[in-house]
Design a protein around this nucleic acid. Sequence first.
DNA 1: GAGGAATTGATTGTTGACAATCGGAGAATC
DNA 2: GATTCTCCGATTGTCAACAATCAATTCCTC
Lengths: 230, 230
Amino acid sequence: METEIGLRPIQHRTLRSTVAHNLREAIQQRRLVPGARLRDDELAVQLGVSHSTVREALHQLTHERLVVSAPHRGFFVAGFTFGDLIDLLEMRGLLEGRIAEATVRELTDDDFAALAAAAAAIGQAAPNDGNAFWEADLAFHEIILRRCTKTILVELWSTLSSRLTMLELLFHDTFEASLAESQAHHLAYLDQLRARDPRRARHAAEEHYRHPVNGLRRFQIQAEEVADGE
Amino acid sequence: METEIGLRPIQHRTLRSTVAHNLREAIQQRRLVPGARLRDDELAVQLGVSHSTVREALHQLTHERLVVSAPHRGFFVAGFTFGDLIDLLEMRGLLEGRIAEATVRELTDDDFAALAAAAAAIGQAAPNDGNAFWEADLAFHEIILRRCTKTILVELWSTLSSRLTMLELLFHDTFEASLAESQAHHLAYLDQLRARDPRRARHAAEEHYRHPVNGLRRFQIQAEEVADGE
DNA sequence: GAGGAATTGATTGTTGACAATCGGAGAATC
DNA sequence: GATTCTCCGATTGTCAACAATCAATTCCTC
């Protein structure tokens, strides 16, 4: 096998996907706020493409739930809630439990080394750098995913993750502080995986998600109390 | 409230969705077999629409995983496996467990009556009529879904269900016989829901899926033994 | 002023033509 | 015979113009 060079596949081969990428980025960076109107012809002239192309990109983003379309009234940036973030994270935990159960036995020694390295990287990433932090988190989990042969579950996990990443970055600053323990949780998870026991693996995966989910729930309650108090 | 008339919303307002619907149906009825090539211009003349429209429909079906596209080689009907069906069903069980947990308390007396009626309808539907059977099954579960305020989970459930329905119909004849107990399982599930206890509801929902999942697993093993024996 | 019908303007879908891109067949070379 | 190069046809993406549809405003009637 060739040595791994850090080359990534070229990302945007079509105009449509480039437009979609630009819009995604704008939403992530809050340059486009939830509820904002997205006029296709306006975007078309701004980006220098036809309105059909913009429209197809908007349709794609609608599939990804980043954009909602009100028929004959226009496209709008979707509204995101903290509750969605929690539900998504919780679901990914359930799903990953099943994946871990079906996959632990297939993990190689190399995989465990990679997992340890990834956990270290999570500790390294500063909690206030959202991109680096969540990228490291993704890298950890994807090592397990790579060994899973249940394509349906893997697909599902990826779908959830892309939406999750968006929400994590959007709300990042509200729970940044609670990320300090993240490395420890990943290490504990990894320790359990080492037993290569499906049941334990499943339980450990679910447990690994329980902490952040509960943490987010506390933030949510606080936020609601603040909102009610005003 | 108005009495329920069986009117369904008009389904295909756009040409694209009509084309997609036709193709879906053809796949479901095995008129288009897995691996079959889908030429856009050929379909375009057959259906009397432009190739762009066909192409958009194919893109949509690609999102739904019914079709795969090999860039610059064409579109093909996706390959479906029995294992996918099992994974999908199992995941929907996990998801529905969480939904039931979050929703039992909101179920009204009317809902319970509707659930009982839906369970009866499942008993009524002949196991050899796939469409009727699975439609009745969907109707039962959707009563619970309607009360769920966690939009993310509901969306996810619907996505899973549409793929699931396709696979169920595709493989229906292989496990038709095992559907006789279905009504009993639904009734047991319903009985547990009546307690309006979140934990019990979650457990009951997961249990409700365990039987068919295990049943399918047995079929899968048999099928593999047959395949190995040849 | 309230309620309803007609108008209006914008949104959306559809199309055929054109351009860019890629896979595979065959030629050329080693 | 195997490998690389070149070209061709098919696939694919993009676009601008046109047509259909619908929400919202205006106008009319009572």
